[in-house]
């Protein structure tokens, strides 16, 4: 008898929890599932369906990981914003996922589908080539101005 009582309580708790989990929708990213950047910065934005019906804006948690399975992950942001700007990333593959959280009741919804950012910086050879071209152009520009000024002074 006592035993079945415990089972009943367990079932009720399970149902209540399932109900809460039901209220926490799965968010989604607005970005493409796979992004490649050559400059190391990227803006991520996300949302959930049915935002308009919610009494207050939901809070989110965003995680970053170096593995697609999120074996170890870093906390990037939690709060009500629906976007974040990442920058200064080194070469590599980064994975992101987001979920709805309720800090007051300490509950959280399911994770979104994860997305990846592939950071592939331009080659330094290209960068320094352009840098060198720029330096040469600047040098010539300064020369044209300086020589021009000197010549016109002679004319006068």
């Amino acid at each position: 008898m006592k035993h079945s009582y415990y089972i009943l309580v367990f079932i009720i708790i399970f149902l209540v929890n399932a109900g809460i989990a039901d209220e926490m929708p799965q968010p989604f990213f607005d970005n493409a599932a796979e992004i490649t950047t050559r400059s190391g910065y990227q803006r991520l934005s996300w949302g959930v369906d049915g935002m308009a019906q919610m009494s207050e804006p939901p809070k989110f948690e965003l995680q970053q990981s170096l593995s697609p399975q999120f074996a170890s992950s870093a906390h990037i942001y939690s709060g009500a914003d629906r976007a974040t700007f990442l920058s200064g990333l080194k070469d590599g593959d980064y994975y992101y996922r987001v979920r709805v959280i309720d800090p007051q009741n300490n509950t959280m919804g399911p994770w979104s589908e994860s997305i990846s950012i592939k950071v592939r910086h331009h080659s330094l050879t290209l960068a320094f080539t352009l840098f060198a071209i720029g330096a040469v152009i600047l040098l010539f520009t300064v020369l044209i101005v300086v020589k021009g000024v000197r010549n016109t002074q002679i004319e006068n």
Partner: peptide
């Protein structure tokens, strides 16, 4: 954001003279 204080961030090196 390690690349922001890196002297060899390629996009920035290109941006200087640009």
């Amino acid at each position: 954001k390690p690349m922001l204080i890196d002297m060899l961030l390629p996009a920035s090196i290109m941006a200087i003279f640009n």
